[in-house]
């Protein structure tokens, strides 16, 4: 280095990203445990696509490939995207989503550090808007004892689109617990009636609640190793709890418990892994609080009153838009410029 400081910490971007990937593993493990190994196929597909498109984009942009490819940021985008789309989907769905995330949402905005929106969420948004039908067929957890495809049959569907004779896609998949809740509420059922359905477990969706728990455990690891700051996840979950709590207390027959909101959909993975993307979240402490609270509020509103089953992705993207403004208006006072000084 040309000038001081001459010493640095060994922490590097790729280490941070690697730790975040590591923190996703408990959630993925529980996913496999409850829903089978199909998710690993989409994670692998997404990873390969991400690395390949990243390399191509770096080449096109005339950037050095090795240091940027080994920063693991593309991998993280791939994993987060793979985890937010149904595992039993045609292979091209995950490939298109990942490629869009890397090419458009990341590199066309200037690559690592310059993207305004969370690439994984943009990829998700593109898929759910363009291919809504494919995005609603989720695997049923083993414990429900329904008809399930074995791994070979799943692979055959993913890569060839063929199902075993006599089975339809609807027979072997289900809607997400949040989606089901919304549909059933529209049909006039009460929350308690819906919650008695077999797909629901103790807190939220059977199986999916445990996956969310897995993500929470990974998130707490990130929190305690100070990879992420407490502001975003705690304020997000806190606000979501508070808003859901108010509605639930007000009308428990139409509004589910706050814990249900915590443990269903993308709330947990979002709180710890998606909102906390440093590039697309505010830099100031106050800004982070506003950002997280806004995202929680939007998530709740979209989930309960909006047209999409889950609101995490759109809430994140909408709040991403506000980041520059939030940062501008939440600049902290610097040393020696605090109120009350001379």
């Amino acid at each position: 280095m040309l000038s001081s400081p001459f010493i640095t910490t060994p922490t590097s971007v790729n280490q941070i990203m690697l730790r975040v990937l590591l923190a996703l593993i408990p959630g993925i493990a529980l996913y496999v445990w409850y829903f089978g190994p199909a998710i690993l196929v989409s994670i692998t597909l997404a990873s390969i696509t991400a690395l390949a498109t990243e390399a191509v984009m770096l080449k096109l942009r005339d950037r050095p490939i090795k240091p940027f490819l080994s920063d693991h940021s593309a991998l993280l985008t791939a994993w987060l995207l793979a985890l937010s789309i149904p595992p039993l989907a045609p292979w091209w769905l995950v490939v298109v989503g990942t490629a869009f995330a890397i090419v458009v949402a990341k590199h066309l905005y200037g690559g690592l550090g310059s993207n305004a929106f969370n690439p994984a969420m943009i990829g998700y948004a593109v898929l759910i808007i363009s291919f809504p039908a494919h995005m609603t067929h989720w695997l049923t957890p083993h414990a429900l004892g329904g008809i399930e495809l074995d791994f070979a049959q799943q692979l055959s569907y993913i890569f060839h689109g063929t199902l075993p004779a006599g089975l339809t896609l609807d027979a072997v998949t289900m809607a997400t617990p949040l989606d089901t809740l919304k549909t059933q509420l529209h049909l006039g059922l009460s929350v308690s009636e819906i919650r008695d359905m077999p797909i629901y477990g103790r807190l939220a969706g059977h199986g999916s609640e445990m996956v969310a728990l897995g993500f929470a455990i990974g998130g707490l690891y990130l929190l305690f190793t100070r990879i992420i700051s407490w502001h975003l996840p705690l304020v997000y979950l806190g606000t979501l709890f508070a808003v859901a709590g108010i509605f639930h207390v007000f009308d428990p027959t139409h509004y589910v418990t706050p814990l249900f909101h915590w443990f269903s959909g993308a709330a947990m993975i979002g709180a710890f892994f998606i909102l906390t993307d440093p590039v697309t979240s505010p830099t100031t402490a106050k800004g982070k609080i506003i950002f997280a609270a806004g995202a929680a509020l939007l998530t709740y509103l979209i989930r309960v009153f909006g047209g999409f089953p889950d609101g995490m992705a759109f809430a994140t993207i909408l709040m991403n838009i506000c980041v520059p403004l939030i940062d501008l208006y939440t600049q902290p006072k610097v040393f020696g410029k605090k109120d009350g000084l001379l």
Partner: peptide, 23 residues
């Protein structure tokens, strides 16, 4: 010697340690 510089990812580790409380 420091490894080649990567783009800033706005992780704000610098803001957390800045004694002048800058960004």
């Amino acid at each position: 010697p420091a490894p080649p510089a990567l783009p800033c990812i706005r992780c704000t580790r610098c803001a957390q340690v800045c004694p002048a409380e800058l960004q």
